Amino acid sequence: MDLWTYERQQWNNGCTALCGVDEAGAGPLAGPVYAAAVILPREIDLPGLNDSKKLTPKKREALFDQITAAAEAYSIAFVTAEEIDQMDILNARMLAMNRAIGGLSVPPDLCLIDGNRDHGSAVAITAPHLCLVGGDGKSASIAAASILAKVSRDRYVTDVLDREYPQYQFARHKGYGTKLHYAMLDQYGPCPAHRQTFLKKWEDKRT
């Protein structure tokens, strides 16, 4: 599929600063949720650009460097595990995306948002936007944002959480509810990096 189809439609409608937005880390039991917003040059050639989930870690890292070097503007933001516990993950996702959009050095005319949700019970996307279901596999701008968010979160989990709490082996499971992660929780219990509201999944797993 041509990843520039949705961008062309908006450029033809008069948009100039078109921004892709996506988040990473909504599902894990631990760590922050990250979001990224990126404005790419029109139809820039980024070989292999795709939904971050469909790429190898090595390819994501390479594209991260290419995207950040070439982007007209980009911003990466996060919402902490403590904030997630305070507001719930849907509101946290919206807040992370708002923070990423707000951090752009170029105000966007329109944001293409991955997914079908643009608000929670308390937080809504405030910038002009369109939601695109499966957008990380349909839009170059959203795909780029998905890579920036995913790589940034993986780096944080590996470089910070794994070093602070090595017994949990965060670098291996990235905080997701894998068999290994549950085994570490069974052995050590939760640590401050865990989302307390998500630990019911762990408790349910034990019963």
Rank of each mutant, 00 (worst) to 15 (best):
M1R: 11
L3F: 11
L3S: 04
W4A: 08
Y6E: 13
E7L: 02
E7D: 12
Q10D: 13
N12F: 12
A17Y: 10
A17V: 08
L18I: 15
C19S: 10
C19T: 00
C19D: 03
G25M: 02
G27K: 03
Y34L: 01
A35H: 06
A36L: 06
V38E: 01
L40E: 03
P41W: 05
E43R: 07
I44L: 14
D45K: 11
L46N: 04
P47C: 06
G48W: 02
N50D: 13
D51S: 01
D51K: 02
S52I: 01
K53S: 09
T56V: 01
T56F: 06
K59C: 00
D65C: 04
A69P: 10
A71Y: 06
I76E: 04
A77N: 05
V79D: 10
E83T: 15
I84G: 04
I84N: 09
D85Q: 13
D85T: 10
M87V: 13
D88A: 15
N91S: 13
A96S: 11
A96M: 13
A96C: 09
G102M: 09
L104R: 04
V106Y: 10
V106I: 15
V106E: 01
C111T: 08
D114C: 05
D114P: 08
D118W: 13
H119V: 08
S121D: 14
A122P: 02
A124K: 14
I125F: 05
A127C: 00
P128M: 05
L130D: 00
L132R: 04
V133T: 10
V133E: 05
G134W: 07
G134F: 08
D136T: 09
D136L: 02
G137S: 14
K138A: 11
S139F: 06
S139R: 07
S141W: 01
I142V: 14
I147N: 03
A149S: 07
K150H: 03
S152W: 04
R153N: 01
R155S: 07
V157Y: 10
D159W: 05
V160P: 08
L161S: 05
A171V: 10
A171R: 14
K174M: 14
Y176H: 08
T178S: 12
Y182G: 07
M184Y: 05
M184A: 11
L185Y: 09
L185P: 06
D186G: 12
Q187A: 14
Q187D: 00
Q187H: 03
G189H: 02
P190I: 08
C191D: 06
P192W: 03
P192L: 02
H194G: 07
Q196K: 15
T197K: 02
T197I: 12
T197R: 09
F198N: 09
K201C: 14
K201Q: 15
K201A: 15
W202V: 12
E203Y: 13
T207A: 09
T207N: 13
